[in-house]
Simulated assay, not measured.
Amino acid sequence: MEKKLLGNTKLETAPIIFGGNVFGWTANEKESFELMDQFLDMGFNMIDSADVYSRWAKGNSGGESESIIGKYMKARGNRHKLTIATKVGSSMQQGGDKNISKTHILKAVEDSLRRLQTDHIDLYFTHWDDDKTPVEETLEAYQKLIDQGKVRYIGASNLSPERLKASLEASKTEGLPKYEVFQPEYSLMVRDKFEGDIQEICKKNNLGVTSYFSLASGFLTGKYDNLEGIKGTEREQFLKEYFNDRGKKVLKALKDISDHHNISQAGIALRWIIQRPGVTAPIASTTKPDHFKSFKEAISFELTSEEMTMLNNASS
């Protein structure tokens, strides 16, 4: 399978990255092992996690995703086959304060390394900005971790254009590590968090881009027909804003193209991201092995310019 370099790093990723947020949440340990086995067997190689995943599940406190990945790599002896990305900065408590201070990062990385049962993290992301820590302080923490060999490269997620530019400028002027990858929310339903200023900054600085919520929390699969069907479920908070005229147009365009190619709507939605300017690879999750079908579909065909226009117009 063809791999892509992430920005200016030496890290390579297959065209789709597995979202490890499901490990320990909607997939238990045994299921997670099976999913990772199949993912690797298909030729994919990169898993994205965070220190707070999967705090949402009842009885969890955060770190469960990293722990499962760590147990998996130890059991299979395959750390060398995987590119592991994880994140720091979110709170282990829902609604808690974000923290990207040097003190917090240096402590949090040790916890992540212990859970992952590895001596290094390939790509370490600033998960969320706390909007108060000087960008230089955050980058100084990463410098120490890179010097110690605990982190290979760094990335940023969910930063404002202003803070991302300030961070990149500090890297140049202060000789500090540079964010090499940016991770925005990006899908047919959410385009403004990447397109525009962030996209231009990434292009100008040759940043790799790995998009999350690529299937809009499952909305783009076409599985959820209406809001009533998900009332009272955990999906409601993620999908409720999509059941509008724009959402209907997007789903119709996906279905039309899906029917024409006999390919799933999820495969079409992922392929759209793969073909968008500036994107290195979308992140996608699944909890069932048969859902990997959409991964295979997305990398095995190409949308025509007319089909891309149809999707662009429906989602604009």
Rank of each mutant, 00 (worst) to 15 (best):
S101L: 08
R79I: 07
S90A: 13
S90W: 11
G196V: 08
A170V: 06
L176T: 01
Q117G: 09
I100M: 12
I121L: 10
K107R: 14
R114A: 15
H127Y: 04
D130A: 08
L164D: 03
G155L: 08
T86G: 03
T103K: 14
Q183A: 09
K165N: 12
A166Q: 12
I84D: 00
Y124T: 02
S187F: 00
S157L: 09
V181A: 10
E140L: 15
K81F: 10
S112H: 00
A141P: 02
E137V: 08
K107N: 12
L82M: 15
L113I: 05
T173S: 14
V109C: 11
L113F: 08
F194L: 09
Y153G: 02
E137F: 08
E136P: 02
G149I: 07
E162K: 12
N205W: 09
S101C: 11
Y124K: 00
I201Y: 09
T138N: 04
H127C: 06
M92L: 15
L164M: 03
Q199H: 09
L113H: 06
R114T: 14
Q94V: 13
W128L: 08
T83K: 11
V109E: 02
G96L: 04
K98Y: 14
L116S: 03
K144N: 10
K172D: 14
P177C: 09
G196E: 02
I201Q: 01
T118K: 02
L164N: 02
I105W: 00
H104S: 08
L188F: 03
N158V: 07
Y142G: 01
S112L: 03
R115A: 01
K172V: 13
T103V: 10
F182Y: 15
H104T: 10
S187I: 00
A85V: 09
S91E: 04
H80M: 14
G95M: 01
V181Y: 00
L116D: 05
E200L: 11
D131W: 12
E185G: 13
E169H: 12
L82K: 05
A166P: 03
C202V: 07
E169Y: 14
G155T: 02
D131C: 10
S160K: 10
E140T: 11
A170D: 06
D97M: 13
S187N: 07
A170S: 13
D129T: 11
M189E: 00
E180I: 01
E200F: 07
R152M: 12
S112W: 01
L139I: 07
I201T: 05
K203W: 11
K204Q: 15
S101Y: 11
R152P: 00
N205A: 07
T126H: 04
A170E: 09
D130E: 00
S91F: 01
H120V: 14
T83Y: 10
P177K: 03
Q183P: 02
K203G: 04
T138G: 00
H120G: 05
V109F: 04
I100C: 00
I146V: 05
P184Q: 02
Q183M: 13
V135C: 03
G95E: 09
L164R: 06
Y142K: 04
K98G: 07
L113N: 01
A156P: 00
K178Q: 15
H127N: 11
E185D: 07
Q148T: 04
G95L: 05
K81W: 05
A141I: 09
T103S: 15
I154Y: 04
M189H: 07
I121A: 04
